[in-house]
């Protein structure tokens, strides 16, 4: 009896159930390993980027961005992301919609195809575009052909001097290819979990396809969509491999921020190179903050829902 009482007192004093907890030393070791790893591989490099970028002072840091090549690189990066991200948003929603809401032959194949850009090395995807659109590629052969089909197209391409490789279109294409999966991958599981009932309900109530999408589907997926878009954007601005292959590294013309960083670094302009790199690091920070915001908002909504249910049962 006395033992029981003391056990109760112990439980009251130590509400956690000791028996299912790991020993203290193990927790300390695990937490230090995790923190040490994060610090060494994530935080220290980030700090180094800013430290090196600011090593010659604040004014030298700012001067890096006055350089016209640097500005051109920033512009091109914004342009490439500005085209690739909205297009991938549309493709991603369309693909996720098709996969989540319809049954069709080849669905599994399409699902794995969407992941292809993750599976393929970015360099390879860049090379594919060179092969397709380069001077020795299909487009080059078409332009050089003596007797092409659609002669008007050939002369139009000549007249307008349309080039893809070593030019902005190639960079946009490569960026799109590499960032294609982000939006679709965020949406597919969510849309599959939500099912089709709400859309079907809207249809039976007489809504058109567009009304159903805008008023029912979109509000249900907006946070996942936003999340996919910021991840897609981060990758679009930071992409190196594929863009490097198709860019040709023409200064002031076909260099994006990551490519410009590499060039500066190879020319031993360490401070300038790190200053440029700090832009991408900032982008990463902003992405992380936005991502946490989205998750926080989502959690708030879930908690509000849970709270209202509890309240309801409490009042009953």
């Amino acid at each position: 009896m006395a033992k029981n009482v003391s056990t109760l007192a112990y439980v009251a004093k130590h509400p956690r159930r000791r028996s299912i907890e790991d020993p203290l030393w193990l927790r300390i070791v695990l937490i230090s390993v995790a923190l040490g790893f994060v610090g060494l591989f994530l935080i220290v490099p980030m700090l180094v980027v800013f430290a090196e970028g600011l090593s010659n002072g604040w004014s030298a840091y700012l001067r890096t961005f006055e350089d016209s090549d640097a500005q051109a690189a920033i512009r091109l990066t914004l342009l490439a992301a500005g085209i690739a991200v909205p297009l991938n948003m549309v493709f991603g929603v369309a693909a996720a919609w098709a996969i989540a809401k319809f049954e069709f032959r080849g669905k599994n194949f399409l699902t794995s195809l969407i992941d292809l850009p993750f599976a393929v090395s970015p360099v390879v995807s860049g090379l594919v575009y060179v092969l397709l659109f380069g001077a020795q590629g299909w487009l080059g052969q078409y332009l050089a052909a003596e007797d092409p089909w659609l002669p008007w197209l050939q002369s139009w391409l000549y007249d307008h001097d349309i080039r893809i490789i070593f030019a902005t279109p190639g960079i946009v294409l490569a960026t799109m290819f590499v960032t294609f999966p982000f939006v679709a991958r965020e949406l597919i599981p969510l849309m599959q979990a939500q099912g089709r009932d709400e859309e079907l309900a809207a249809l039976t109530l007489g809504a058109s396809g567009w009304q159903t999408f805008r008023r029912v589907t979109l509000p249900n997926i907006k946070w996942a969509l936003f999340y996919g878009v910021i991840l897609c954007n981060a990758r679009a601005m930071g992409e190196f491999g594929a863009v490097s292959v198709v860019s040709g590294h023409i200064r002031g013309e076909t260099n994006t921020i990551p490519l410009h960083v590499e060039i500066l670094f190879n020319e031993f302009q360490t401070q300038a190179s790190f200053a440029m790199a700090s832009l991408l690091t900032l982008l990463a920070f902003i992405t992380l903050v936005l991502k946490s915001l989205v998750e926080w908002r989502h959690r708030l909504a879930v908690e509000a829902a849970a709270a209202s249910v509890t309240r309801q049962f409490a009042t009953k």
């Binding site: 009932d197 709400e198 039976t204 109530l205 509000p219």
Partner: peptide, 18 residues
């Protein structure tokens, strides 16, 4: 479905959550 003049009530209600 939208033009048949039917009202359909789904098993799990399918109310528009938002």
């Amino acid at each position: 479905a939208g033009k048949r003049g039917v009202g359909f009530v789904f098993q799990h209600y399918a109310l528009f959550k938002h």
